[in-house]
Design a protein around this nucleic acid. Structure first.
Length: 272
DNA sequence: ATGGTGGCACCGCCA
């Protein structure tokens, strides 16, 4: 079984349907995980996305903010929608892929949108930063509770809003005090990864010495020239699927499209 | 050192 998985923080699914169509036609993902859909499930453009070749759709939405959706050409069962910090935010959704081989566990795909954390990296005066740290801790606790780390077949994708490595930001030194790359965040990020021996699929394909970004601020006019990017979007796999991710690519071309998202899609091909 | 942009929904919030 081979499938192509893509993740993209779309920053409003409703106003970027044309860009989703353009991306899907060019890259033909079998599963597309979207974050920041910014709408309720009742407002979600099911018909338009089904028409793009995704008959199977799961949505966790809320009014105006956040929200994730997983679109699939392959049949799946809805897993769960976790509210990790109990604030009623729609930030997680998991699915279980059908068609697994006899005797194998299903493949679970987690789609996550970790809180951005606000501007000031101080949990005492900035509750949004506290929430982000709590959210990462809750992820660690959650995955620590999973058994059979080597046999569970799970993929986790999404906008995790942390750039963990020095080469995941345009300037390690200048961003150490900027939310997304501060030590309290990157340390927790490492703890989440360790909690289930998650594999960083993107870094399996691009050496840690090389810069690798998935997000460029809207505030930099010429994003390609200034290249002040960060790697905020991630694809992880459990040990049982680590070798199955046979290729990975960051689709930078979408960042040049008119009225696009500030995040670009990341694709991984799995050969199970 | 500062301000720079964008979406949604409300008369700012969140990113």
């Amino acid at each position: 079984m081979r499938f192509r998985l893509a993740t993209w923080n779309i920053n409003s699914v409703r106003i970027r349907l044309d860009l989703i169509e353009r991306f899907v036609r060019a890259h033909e993902p079998d599963i597309l995980c979207l974050q920041e859909i910014k709408c309720q499930e009742s407002q979600f453009p099911f018909e338009a996305l089904q028409a793009l070749g995704f008959p199977h759709i799961a949505v966790a939405g809320q009014k105006g903010y956040h929200g994730v959706a997983t679109l699939s050409r392959l049949p799946f069962k809805l897993g769960e929608r976790r509210d990790l910090c109990g604030r009623g935010h729609a930030r997680h959704l998991s699915i279980k892929l059908d068609g697994a081989e006899a005797g194998q566990k299903p493949i679970v795909v987690h789609n996550l949108y970790v809180p951005a954390g606000g501007d000031i990296p101080d949990p005492v005066i900035n509750d949004k930063f506290q929430h982000k740290l709590d959210y990462l801790d809750a992820m660690t606790a959650w995955f620590s509770g999973h058994r059979t780390k080597t046999k569970n077949r799970m993929i986790l994708v999404g906008d995790l809003n942390v750039a963990p490595l020095p080469t995941d930001v345009w300037s390690h030194k200048q961003l150490l005090k900027v939310v997304s790359h501060t030590p309290p965040e990157t340390e927790r990020f490492e703890q989440v990864m360790a909690s289930h021996e998650w594999i960083d699929v993107m870094r399996r394909h691009v050496p840690a010495e090389e810069k690798l970004f998935t997000w460029w601020s809207y505030r930099n006019r010429d994003w390609r020239v200034s290249n002040r990017g960060r790697r905020l979007d991630h694809i992880w796999a459990t040990q049982a699927l680590g070798e199955a991710a046979v290729s990975m690519s960051v689709i930078e071309e979408t960042r040049d499209w008119t009225r696009t998202s500030d995040h670009v899609p990341v694709i991984a091909d799995f050969e199970i």
